[in-house]
Amino acid sequence: MRQHDILVECSQLVKEYKGTRNKPVRAVHDLSFSIRQGETFGLVGESGCGKSTLGQLMVRLLEPTSGTVRYTNFQDGRGNRKQEKAMRKENQIIFQDPYSSINPRKRIGWLVEEPLIIHGIGKDAQERKAMVCSILKEVGLDDSYLDRWPRELSGGQRQRVAIAIALILNPSFVVCDEVVSALDVSVQAQVLNLLQELQEKFGLTYLFISHNLQVVSYLSDRIGVMYLGGLVEMGDTEQIYHHCLHPYTKALFSASVDAFDSVKEDLLLSGDIPSPSRSPSGCPFHTRCISCMKRCIEENPSMVEVSPGHFCACHLIQGMNT
């Protein structure tokens, strides 16, 4: 990996929330990874695994408890208003539910124009309007939407608006947090196609967060699998899809039913996901793992590079290597 390829780098990121009786709840636990320029990094995991928290940490909507998020194309903006604003211009986030992520009391034109006003871009209203129209056109909406209210739009159209708002500042990095999960299949396909077109056109880098392994493996160049606040496996999509190593990844693939493939390996996990406030000792997955060993209960495995670019945190793998 060449250094200048990397766009965002997280190291030892920890985010804790105050839980009941002041016992901290670890939403994200000691996470290190980096995202390369121009790629789509897919993040999969089930509810409560901390993937959304991680997404918000990446765009500084949340401050990490410890660890750092470093951007390579501009300076760290902490404590400096001007630099922070520059950071806000480069990083955008798009949320899952297009019904709650758009202010219902503002017209579409106003909403799309707002980022330009915040960052003082465009000489006058005329120039800004031209920019708004051109970005709306990019996402497949025409000028007639300028004066419409969000309530007049369907879910797919709203998500297009949300994308337009995120992209009007011409950002380099976009976090897509479950952006297609709330949409119907046919509309989901439209939005996925749109995201890919825009990526090619504007050279965007995506962090694509989803619980749907099919969507993630379709869209991403690399995949990270999260379980209870930590990454358990990470690698190129090909590596993960064909040679996944971690028992949890295997179970996920087995569970995410594809209409076309027959089930690869019938792996049925027993039990439920533990709550992050009562994270088990040792490997977080050991309570549900089918190949749990004594070592797994005592010791949390660390990420090991199995083959170039393919990381996995499991004692089974380490047992094989050493």
Partner: peptide
């Protein structure tokens, strides 16, 4: 609310 979060992420004061 998500739309508030979203505008915060865009740098709104």
């Amino acid at each position: 609310a998500e739309f508030v979060q979203a505008s915060r992420a865009r740098g709104a004061s």
